[in-house]
């Protein structure tokens, strides 16, 4: 077995009283170096809470987190806050569903990426920072980055904004990228471009990915392995081909046939959970 880059053991997250149902219940997962794991589930499945727990972005006053999250042999749940801050962005980066809300509307896009570069590489001069920013935008296949360095987020389309966020995420060469529904808000033709880009970056930077989505078809295209969550628990996981061809769980089976494809039998109703 290849050494794990990220290893989650018996992770539980609970909001509120001990009697309430945990948002994540005893979750164990691992991501090997260079691997893309698809994390699939519907609302309330705990998939986004899991990603926030990895980055330790859950409010400690509200969320009780137990278990273990190891990243490159460091335990994240007990890592001092300043080390955690250094790790965010440089070791583990994240992109979200809605690129507009993740960007500062009153700051030029080049500056926003530059800020992220300076936090992790304080020794760089002004020119070097700018070069890194352009390099990152180029890596994200962002058109004419030098010309558009000083433009603001609202001047870009949804797909271009997602490229800006991806540039920001890869600017510090993270080893793990957490992508939480990164294409859900995008048009389908733009989605295809962003998925191509993520596949290219994966090769280029030997990036590992935790790809969170509700869309099994997307997972089947980007992930090596898939984990299916429901109500905070892991239902099954395995290689994409195995899970999709032979789902062990009734819920996975119904998810697979709940969304019509271009070849769905038109005479039959869509699969639903009884």
């Amino acid at each position: 077995m290849t050494p794990a880059l990220l290893e989650i053991n018996e992770l539980s997250v609970r909001f509120g009283a001990a009697a309430t149902r945990p948002a994540v219940a005893g979750l164990s997962l691992r991501i090997a170096r260079g691997e893309v794991l698809g994390l699939v589930g519907e609302s309330g499945s705990g998939k986004s809470v899991t990603s926030l727990a990895i980055l330790r972005l859950l409010d400690p006053a509200a969320a009780r987190v137990t278990g273990s999250i190891r990243f490159e042999d460091r335990e994240l749940l007990t890592l001092p806050e300043d080390e955690m801050r250094r790790l965010r962005g440089s070791g583990i980066a994240m992109i979200f569903q809605e690129p507009m809300t993740a960007l500062n509307p009153v700051m030029p896009i080049g500056e926003q990426i530059a800020e992220a570069v300076r936090i992790h590489q304080p020794g760089l001069g002004k020119r070097q920072v700018r070069e890194r920013v352009i390099e990152a935008l180029n890596a994200a296949a962002f058109p004419r980055p030098a010309e558009r360095y000083s433009d603001y987020p609202h001047q870009f389309s949804g797909g271009q904004r997602q490229r800006i966020l991806i540039a920001m995420a890869v600017a510090n060469r993270p080893r793990l990228l957490i992508a939480d529904e990164p294409t859900t808000a995008l048009d389908v033709t733009v989605q295809a471009q962003i998925l191509d880009l993520l596949a290219k970056l994966r090769e280029e930077f030997s990036l590992s990915m935790l790809f969170i989505t509700h869309d099994l078809a997307v997972v089947s295209q980007v992930a090596d392995r898939v984990a299916v969550m429901r109500h905070g628990s892991l239902l099954e996981e395995g290689r994409c081909g195995d899970v999709f061809a032979h789902p062990q769980h009734e819920y996975t089976r119904s998810l697979l046939h709940a969304v019509p494809t271009m070849t769905t039998d038109l005479e039959r109703p869509l699969a639903t959970l009884s």
Partner: peptide, 8 residues
């Protein structure tokens, strides 16, 4: 073509 299909 851009519509993702389940890859088995």
């Amino acid at each position: 073509a851009a519509t993702p299909e389940l890859r088995l």
